[in-house]
Amino acid sequence: MIATPPAIAVSNLRKSFKNRAGTVEVLRGVSFTVEKGETFALLGPNGSGKTTTLNILSGLLSMDSGEAYLLGQSLGSRKTAAMVSFLSGDSQFQWSYPGRKILNFYLQLAGKSWRDISDLIDRFKLEQILDRTWEEYSNGEKTRIRLTRALLKNPQLIVLDEPTVGLDPNFAEELRKLLKEQHDRGTTILITSHYMRDIEELASRIAFIHNGRIIKTGTLQDYVVPNTNVEVTFRQLPEQAAQFGAVNGNTLVTTLTDLARVVAMGDVLAVHSRDEDLEDYFIALTKQVEESAEVTGA
């Protein structure tokens, strides 16, 4: 039996940029593999290297060293472009061009016709807005056009960079639904997002990237631990509260271990047990990595 190549194979990817202050190493040996049909999330704080990784995969940026293949093909080739769609939450088009002409251009590049995307037109209710120009669209309408453009070539792999940024909750939900459908059809998805809900609902595997390195890869279950956290609501949030976890208004999410000390800090209104979710994990892991970097001076 011939083994099929993974949808994405990235090995020891390195990238640095020179600026006036010197050389900044943005990727320090990133490696990961995404199997066909998987939905894989790349999570990390701002500046961790997510977008740089995606830009390298899309052929907009060259790597310093390492190897990367999409669907077994080298990056930036025409064959790859025919099978892969990249969608960024802030993709822009010519402001004076109407949606119909924008889509027509990308349809022609993909060798497709309007008939091929009639279901997408219906689904996103585009017919009514196609003759308006890009600058006249609302954020939601722009996203509908972006999505149609990304899906029009019926890609085997979709790479999404912050796809729900700027969307209202209803449309973000619609987008997640659509991506789940694509996943069910066997499309491989690589996604980055700062909205943990996107990741929790969509991703079958999640990799954490920090300071240009993948520091953990696992399934959602590896990150979410039931009943490990508590939510403590204060009448007035004590100053030291932030040392013990994530703060939201007068509420602190902390661990069971720290509960006794936290409760002693101020006037507590309520205490609830809470699952540790991806967001808690994200904050805790980022903090932990930054603290260890400070200790080692890295």
Partner: peptide, 8 residues
């Protein structure tokens, strides 16, 4: 960049 991503 959108055009370049299409393999042009």
């Amino acid at each position: 960049s959108e055009i370049m991503r299409e393999g042009v």
